[in-house]
């Protein structure tokens, strides 16, 4: 219980830390001008979440639960296009976090929380320049994740996770806060046995 409370406290602490990080970096840097644009390489740190369908079966009854993933992503993005133009980019990185599974199943009850997971992603994207400092990207993504789930109490109950490798289609909006620092917001969906993806974070130009 203490650990869980500590986890919650740390979440709030991280949110605060993130805000101060934004403020301090923003203050330290010069204001974005109309002529500045997205640098070619950057590192993003973001909070991400998505939801998967967990299939349950105990021999005679079939049911399903929700498997909610939340955690962080650390990614590297490289932009092929010229600085002033729309164009293609690639992104790769690692992800890690926790997952809670459960729900209001009618037939089989299964509830577990804080299952650790980690993974990686590879994405190609097309970016449109909305203005000299705001961008919109369509990001087809290949996501790999490995989660360690607790087994159901009843020995007869089995679960089937969504595939470890999944695809996602994500829309990303990004705004330059300073020439080096950008804010990004993502919303999209995974394709197989899964649901919405969202994320938000900061990018730092290299």
């Amino acid at each position: 219980m203490v650990g869980l409370f500590w986890g919650k406290f740390m979440l709030h602490f991280k949110i605060l830390l993130l805000s101060f990080f934004v403020c301090s970096l923003s203050l330290a840097a010069e204001t974005v001008s109309q002529t500045q644009s997205l640098p070619k390489s950057k590192i993003d740190f973001s909070y991400v979440s998505w939801s998967e369908v967990l299939k349950l079966e105990d021999g005679t009854t079939k049911d399903q639960a929700t498997n909610q993933f939340f955690g962080n992503a650390l990614t590297y993005q490289y932009d092929f296009s010229s600085r002033q133009a729309s164009g293609f980019l690639v992104e790769t990185g690692i992800l890690f976090g926790k997952a809670n599974a459960g729900g209001s199943q009618a037939g089989i009850t299964y509830q577990t929380s804080n299952n650790p997971w980690s993974g990686a992603l590879l994405a190609g994207a097309y970016r449109w320049n909305l203005s000299p400092s705001t961008y919109l990207s369509l990001v087809p993504t290949l996501l790999y994740r490995k989660v360690t789930m607790q087994a159901p109490n009843a020995s007869t109950t089995q679960f089937k996770l969504a595939p470890d490798i999944n695809q996602a289609l994500i829309i990303e909006a990004r705004a330059l806060l300073t020439p080096k620092l950008s804010f990004k917001y993502q919303m999209g969906s995974l394709v197989t046995q899964a649901n919405a993806w969202w994320g938000f974070g900061l990018g730092y130009a290299l």
Binding site: S51, Q68, N100, G103, Q111, N114, W198
Partner: peptide
């Protein structure tokens, strides 16, 4: 709008 709740007590559909 998407709503999602995180809890160690339950996990529900969005």
């Amino acid at each position: 709008v998407n709503t999602r709740n995180f809890s160690n007590q339950t996990a529900n559909e969005d």
